[in-house]
């Protein structure tokens, strides 16, 4: 009887795992089947032309721009905020409130951030519909993600490391830089990877702050179109699922490459693994 129960449970676990993988494979497979015929050198590296099937190089560049700018701003702020909350701040009501706020921020739909960005960055700060407006909006979106994951990974750094380092006559800052942050680095990097996912996957907020100009951006102050926005507009305007799927394939590959890169860097940085 007990072995039967065990087998049933095992079956359920297996089924759940199988289902998850199956869904993922189906979606990726579907997108791939739909779109792979359009993928070629000109499609990826060619300039966009409004007539017929132009390339998507401008959108790729725009997407990369938004990732880099958002992360350059959000990563240091997020890490420092998390370090403050976890290592320096007295654990009390204020810290609990800040934590509650960051947690709530992660749950807000991105369209709300988009509206805020459109009002504040685009209009009030007069940055216009531009890559920089979109990146600043995205910074606000990913900041709570980075803060939360960094805090969680700081929590996993054993207290004995802090004690061991401080007992050797080091300052708190030295302990932070030499022992705590390196130990927390894998967790911090996974937060950054999650953030890249959020940034690349975002469409509504970018749509409202960067606009939809389908041309090579001249700089970070020009309006432009990211891959997701492009995918959305193509589907909406022409119903061209094939083209949208091809863009989807490029998106998936970009995320995959960035994730692999982040994992690689994390391994390099995490000296415990050698």
């Amino acid at each position: 009887m007990r072995t039967l129960k065990d087998n049933i449970l095992r079956g359920f676990l297996w089924f759940a795992a199988f289902l998850t993988v199956a869904i993922l494979v189906t979606i990726v497979g579907y997108i791939f089947m739909k779109g792979y015929r359009l993928i070629n050198f000109d499609f990826i590296f060619g300039d966009y032309s409004p007539t017929g099937h132009g390339g998507i190089w401008p959108m790729i560049i725009t997407t990369i721009y938004t990732i880099i700018i958002s992360l350059i701003i959000a990563t240091p702020i997020g890490i420092f905020a998390a370090v403050y909350l976890q290592e320096y701040a007295k654990q009390g009501r204020l810290v609990r409130m800040i934590r509650f706020a960051t947690e709530s921020l992660t749950g807000i739909p991105s369209i709300i951030y988009g509206l805020f960005g459109a009002v504040f960055f685009v209009t009030t700060l007069k940055l216009g519909m531009s890559i920089i407006s979109a990146s600043l909006t995205l910074t606000i979106i990913v900041l709570p993600v980075i803060i939360r994951t960094t805090e969680e990974s700081l929590k996993t750094v054993p207290n004995t490391y802090r004690e061991g380092s401080l007992a050797l006559g080091t300052t708190k800052l030295q302990t932070l830089y030499k022992v705590i942050l390196p130990s927390a680095m894998p967790g911090i990097l996974s937060g950054i990877i999650l953030s890249i996912g959020r940034i690349v996957g975002e469409s509504a907020a970018i749509f409202l702050t960067a606009g939809t100009v389908a041309a090579m951006p001249e700089g970070i102050f020009s309006s432009a179109r990211t891959l997701t926005v492009h995918s959305f507009l193509v589907t909406q305007e022409s119903g061209d699922i094939e083209l949208a799927s091809a863009v989807g394939i490029v998106l998936i590959v970009i995320i995959l490459v960035l994730n692999l890169l982040a994992t690689f860097i994390s391994k390099k940085l995490n000296k415990a693994n050698y």
Binding site: P158, G164, A167, L168, A272
Partner: peptide, 12 residues
């Protein structure tokens, strides 16, 4: 200096 109950070497 101090030596702790459980060895607390750093991951280095």
């Amino acid at each position: 200096g101090m030596v702790f109950q459980k060895a607390n070497l750093f991951p280095m």
